[in-house]
Simulated scan of single mutants.
Amino acid sequence: MPLSDDVPEWKALRDTLRALVDRAGAAAAAVIDESNNLWCAWPVASTVPPLAARFAERELAGRPGPPLRRGGRLRVAHPAGAPDDSYMAESFGGIYVLVLWFNGPFDPDFQRARLRRELPRVEALTVALPPPDGPDATEGAAKQRA
């Protein structure tokens, strides 16, 4: 079963991302992994996958240092004005990244504090997700952590 509102953990994660977007005054939020798999996003819209792809290309592909699954960390703030993407992100759980996108410049210190307060809940919900293709799938949140 693909991740959807029928999966309580996914719905809780999506609702958490929605609340984070609202409180931060952001445009969107997403949880992606270091392979640029999109696990959950708010809003659920066609505009988010291209944002995630640009973020992964800019911040994850070929970045210096160890990969996330080997102890690497990612913490980035890019408070840009249009037409560039404005975002901040922090890695968690060994392979995941929580990304917040904004419609323009933002206060990195203020938004980082907000993001870090929400990170434990986002992490707990993300690692609780079942495999997206069902219980016998070889890929999924738990399998990728292994």
Rank of each mutant, 00 (worst) to 15 (best):
A41D: 11
L125T: 06
A56N: 04
L129T: 10
E123K: 14
W42I: 00
Q111L: 07
V44P: 00
L119N: 07
Y87W: 12
E59M: 11
P50E: 02
E57T: 11
G62A: 05
T47Y: 04
L74K: 02
D109F: 11
E59W: 11
R117G: 12
W101Q: 08
L119W: 02
V48Q: 01
Y87P: 00
A128D: 06
S46E: 14
L129M: 08
G81L: 08
L115F: 04
V48Y: 04
T126Y: 08
D109Q: 14
A56Y: 09
T47W: 00
Y87M: 03
S91F: 04
L100M: 08
E57M: 14
V99A: 08
L60F: 01
A124E: 14
L68V: 04
F92W: 08
L74Q: 04
S91A: 13
M88I: 09
R121T: 15
A82G: 07
P66Q: 13
S46A: 15
L125K: 06
P43R: 03
I95Y: 09
T126N: 09
R70F: 13
R114C: 09
F92P: 10
A82F: 12
R117K: 14
A45N: 12
R114P: 00
N103S: 15
E59R: 14
R121M: 12
C40N: 01
E118R: 15
V76Q: 05
M88T: 10
P49H: 04
V97N: 02
L100C: 05
L74M: 03
R70G: 00
A124D: 14
L129K: 07
S91G: 07
G94W: 07
